[in-house]
Amino acid sequence: MKAFFLSLFAAFTLAASAQDKPEGLFINSKAPDFSGTDQNGNKVSLKELKKKGPVVVLFYRGNWCPYCNRQLKNLQDSLQLITDKKASIVAITQEATPGIQETVKKTGAAFPILHDAESKWSKAYGVNFAVDERTIRRYKTADIDLLAINNQKEAASLPVPAVYIINRDGSITYRYFDADYRNRLSVRELAEQIK
């Protein structure tokens, strides 16, 4: 009987922890709309971008993340591979405006970058996750205060660095989702997926 309860507890614990992990949206899902003001003060919305062609939506962690900076710089450097396919790019981050300006300085990103206030878009796309206290303390020792950087009030969260391609109908035609923030999609691989 004791073994039964231990097995039941273990199964419940595994199920509960699995539910905490984001999975992202899947191919053929309808992409939630978003609209905001980019780093240049321009209004940007998925609804309007879709009218022009496919939209690449990229979630990134912040200017303090070297993997994010490398990915955004590579995108900017090879932007023509994307625009030649009549596609547009928009990057979304929970990082507030000062951090976005730092990202632009570091990467030269000329495509729109939107601040995801209150993590509403990263939650809608299923990429948001809560950052545990241990990780928050480790980041603070490196002068990265997630709550301050992201204007978050009570709990720190980050997005999984995910990439979605959305067609004119608003359906997701491709997704790159890897919980290991060090793994990133190359621009060439991304361009090959734009139809």
Rank of each mutant, 00 (worst) to 15 (best):
Q19S: 13
V163F: 07
L72F: 01
V131Q: 02
F12K: 07
E192P: 00
L6V: 11
L190E: 07
T173P: 02
K123S: 08
V90D: 02
L75T: 09
A87N: 01
S119C: 07
N151A: 12
V160G: 04
P54R: 12
V90N: 03
A31I: 05
D84F: 00
D178G: 02
Q152P: 06
P32D: 08
A130F: 06
F177V: 07
K195D: 10
G62L: 02
V163C: 06
R137Q: 14
E23Y: 13
A87M: 04
G36F: 02
T93N: 01
D145E: 13
V104L: 06
N151V: 12
N150D: 14
T93F: 03
N150K: 02
A148S: 12
A31W: 00
V57C: 06
A110V: 09
S88C: 03
E154D: 15
A10L: 15
N74C: 02
N63I: 01
Q94T: 05
G108D: 03
N128W: 15
A117I: 11
R168A: 14
K153D: 14
K106P: 01
W121T: 14
G170Q: 12
E189A: 14
L79P: 00
V57D: 05
A142R: 15
R61Y: 00
I194F: 03
I27P: 01
A117G: 06
P66A: 11
R61A: 04
A130C: 00
T135I: 14
S186I: 10
K140T: 06
I194D: 05
K106V: 03
D143I: 02
W121L: 12
S29L: 03
K120H: 08
W64I: 07
L190G: 06
A142L: 15
L114C: 04
N42Y: 09
I172F: 05
R182K: 15
S157A: 13
K195F: 11
G99K: 05
Q152L: 15
D33N: 15
L81W: 02
M1Y: 10
D33V: 11
S17Q: 13
E133Y: 01
E102P: 00
S17L: 13
K120Q: 10
E154W: 02
I82P: 00
I27S: 04
L14E: 01
T97M: 08
A155W: 00
V90E: 04
S78C: 00
D145L: 11
G170D: 11
M1Q: 10
K153Y: 06
